[in-house]
Design a protein around this nucleic acid. Structure first.
Lengths: 114, 114
DNA sequence: TTGATAGTTATCCATGCGGCTAACTATATG
DNA sequence: CATATAGTTAGCCGCATGGATAACTATCAA
């Protein structure tokens, strides 16, 4: 229950690069081959391949070779796992915020004791 | 509208480290000084300070010096901005998924034409 | 079978990152 | 004033990252 936190390291790292985020974004629309994914980027193929490998290592993308073509697809559950981390943070932060808010309301109503 | 994507780089990078995520998590509960934040970690202070600086550089945390103490607080809007990126991805992915689903349903109903 | 296509492997390079120590500044406090 | 406390600054180190090129393998098409 705490352990999954550790595995977030590579996922966040994978998403910390604009090229890789663009690839993820592209893959939300459906599968694509490596060269299809690489096409928009002014980058040598081996360099681009590293990005794919980082995404794959993070579990955000899975790939499969069909003939000489490697198809890539998004692992949406992994994205969802990261979203869950944010929800958790927001939950704590919001509950504190609401406590502060109600405290402030109390203080204000106590102020005007005319 | 596309530009904010670029600024996500440092935020994701900041969150790609377990120490920094733990700091964020701690700060959801309220402000804290640098040494209070550093206490759980077996790390020299200057090393820890770098983490705070990374978080600050990403806009996830703001700090303010009161006397010799530096207070840190979470910038929740920044967290929310990242959450928004995920929602965007999920939105695209889900709509594609629903299309595939309805397509599949159509094919199945076409199958049993007895 | 001869190309062209799609990746892969190997190697190199500059820069950045996450840790450290040592030495310093500035503020409380006895 | 003297000393402890809370950060800060500077510099070092090893390793990872993101880019490149060159040369290779494997598959598809004419």
């Amino acid at each position: 229950m705490d352990n999954y936190q550790t595995s977030l390291d590579p996922v966040f790292h994978a998403l910390s690069d604009a090229t890789r985020r663009a690839v993820v974004q592209r893959l939300t629309q459906g599968e694509a081959s490596v060269s299809q994914l690489a096409e928009p980027f002014d980058m040598a193929l081996p360099s681009f391949m590293k990005h794919i490998q980082v995404l794959e290592g993070a579990g955000l993308v899975t790939t499969q070779k069909q003939g000489r073509v490697r198809q890539c697809r998004l692992e949406a559950e992994r994205l969802a796992a990261v979203e869950a981390w944010f929800s958790e943070q927001r939950r704590t932060w919001q509950s504190r915020f609401e406590q502060l808010d109600s405290l402030l309301t109390q203080l204000q109503s106590g102020d005007r004791d005319d």
